[in-house]
Each structure stands twice: as structure tokens, then as C-alpha cells.
Design a protein around this nucleic acid. Structure first.
Length: 279
DNA sequence: GCTCATGTTCCCCT
DNA sequence: CAGGGGAACATGAG
């Protein structure tokens, strides 16, 4: 789940359920996912303090508590769940609940099946940056001129660029495919070969796809979205009905329409449909 | 048993 | 240095 839209959903969820609530204690059944503090140090920092308004940058959820800030990353399978105290439903914890912020009238559970995500603590901006690494501007807040500047001088492929968190924060595999499909640009296209008109079109696609996704709190599966069909066996393009193609681009499984998203022959090295042709 | 998965990071090449 | 490919990380689903 967790790309920018999902994390934005978690941000709203946290704000809705936990903001203003006082943390009594934190249970840490899986120490591995508490990344840069001991459970005791986490307790010293947050016990007795309240969640205030959470922020988000790219795929990071930043939740201030007292003097410090919780930094949450959701990896591939992370999520948040609020369980109201005394309610039958959600009373039992899940085996994948890794960190539980116990409040007076409920608890916020950080759940992550695959354990690629984690929770960090940062006392100040310096410490936060050390954890997140350099991040580009949030994908939801980029304007045209900024987008132009970001792409200028970029040498690699466009899908890799969109997913590069140092360039633009928040776009992952699904969203990048969605944006490129919407802009009718092949994922392997070299950034440098995109003319002004296509960059413009790409910006529009990014902007609209991100804005709409954020409203849903995930990448939507509507009629005009690749998301709806990308996992189907015989997936076809929602726009033209052509059978979609799948292949490895920028290290991920990309999905695109060979008719809508044509690749200029000179623009790119061949894209293999599968992995491991060499040794 | 095998393959694949919405993310990040590290290593090796070009 | 920039960027691409591949593997690794941990776990579950099909």
C-alpha cells in the first residue's frame, strides 16, 4: 500500500483518532521496528505526552509528540490502526502489530507484515534528516517550474526519476506507472529526450494523479486508472483496449500500454520482458 | 517447491 | 559523480 496517497491516508487517520490523545505507554513487541531508540528511551520521550498535528513528506509520516517527533515509514506493508478502548471489535492485537501507542481511551497500532518499515525518533531537524536522508519536494506540492528544474540535466529514465525520493518525494512503483500511462510516456524513455510539450503533459499527469489519489487515501481503482487492471492476467489498456505489457524498468515491475506509450527507437536500450538474460 | 509483491539500500558496472 | 541492474532484507499469498 504505502506510497504517498496511502501515507496521506494514514496521516489523516492518525489526526482523526489520536491527535490530542495522551500516550500512557508504548508497547514494543517487535524491537526490530523501533529503529533508533531503545524501548526505554522511546518511553522516556513520549510517555505522558500528547500527539499533536501530524505532517507528511513523501512516504514519511511525521508525528510530533512532546519535544520529539516520531518518524514513521511503512515499507511495503505497513499500516496504522486505532483500537478504541473497551470496544469489542479490534480488541485483540494482530500478530503483526509491532509498536502500540497506548492512550487513555484507545491505542494506535503500527502494523507491518513484512517489516521493511519502521519507527524512528528525532529530536530536531538534523536528526530527522539523518534518518530520512535527502528528500526532494513532496510530489503533491510541486509546481510546473519546479518540475522543469528537477528534470533539467537528468540523464536516466523517466520512471527511475519519478521514483527517486531525492528528486521528488512520495512516488512509488504503482503511482509512477499510473502517471506515465496518463501522460502516454513509456517508462523507459530517457528524461533528456522529452520535449517541452511532453514534460508539460507529464507534469499535468503527475499533478492530477497525485491530487486524486490523495483524496482517496490510496491510488484509486476507477475506470480511467491503470490500477484497476494492472494485476489482471490479461490486462488491457483502459483507454484503447490494447493488451498491456509488463517488464522490468528501474528495478521494478512496470506496466504500460505499448500503443499509448510508444518508445522512440533511438531513445533507449532494449527493455527485457523478463529478468536475468545475462549472467 | 516456486514466483511475486505498493520500499530502501548496498554493491558492482558503465 | 550519475545512473542502471541485481541482490538482499522478511513475510505472506497464490
Amino acid at each position: 500500500m504505502p506510497e504517498l496517497p496511502d501515507v496521506e491516508g494514514f496521516r489523516r487517520y492518525l489526526a482523526h483518532h489520536a491527535e490530542g490523545h495522551r500516550i500512557e505507554r508504548v508497547d514494543v513487541p517487535d524491537r526490530m521496528l523501533l529503529r533508533n531508540r531503545s524501548p526505554r528511551a522511546l518511553g522516556r520521550a513520549v510517555d505522558g505526552r500528547r500527539f499533536t498535528t501530524p505532517r507528511r513528506h513523501g512516504k514519511w509520516l511525521l508525528a510530533p509528540v512532546g519535544e520529539t517527533e516520531l518518524l514513521l515509514h511503512f515499507g511495503m506493508t505497513g499500516l496504522l490502526r486505532w483500537a478504541e478502548r473497551g470496544q469489542e471489535r479490534g480488541r485483540e492485537r494482530d500478530r503483526h502489530d509491532r509498536l502500540i501507542f497506548v492512550c487513555e481511551d484507545g491505542e494506535l497500532r503500527y502494523n507491518d507484515v513484512r517489516r521493511f518499515g519502521g519507527v524512528w525518533l528525532a529530536r530536531d531537524e538534523r536528526e530527522r534528516l539523518a534518518v530520512t536522508g535527502p528528500l526532494g519536494p513532496d510530489a503533491a506540492a510541486i509546481d510546473r517550474e519546479q518540475f522543469e528544474r528537477l528534470l533539467a540535466g537528468r540523464r536516466g529514465g523517466i520512471k527511475a526519476a519519478l521514483m527517486d525520493q531525492r528528486l521528488i518525494a512520495g512516488i512509488g512503483n504503482l503511482l509512477s506507472d499510473e502517471i506515465l500511462w496518463r501522460a502516454c510516456i513509456h517508462p523507459s524513455t530517457r528524461v533528456a529526450t522529452l520535449n517541452r510539450r511532453r514534460r508539460e503533459r507529464l507534469y499535468e499527469a503527475l499533478h492530477s494523479a497525485v491530487a486524486e489519489s490523495i483524496r482517496y487515501g490510496r491510488v484509486p481503482q476507477g475506470k480511467r486508472w491503470l490500477m484497476r487492471v494492472r494485476d489482471d492476467r490479461q490486462a488491457t489498456c483502459p483507454r484503447c483496449g490494447t493488451r498491456l505489457r509488463r517488464g522490468r524498468v528501474a528495478g521494478r515491475t512496470a506496466c504500460w500500454c505499448p500503443r499509448c506509450q510508444r518508445l522512440a527507437a533511438h531513445a533507449v536500450p532494449p527493455v527485457s520482458g523478463r529478468r536475468g538474460a545475462s549472467g
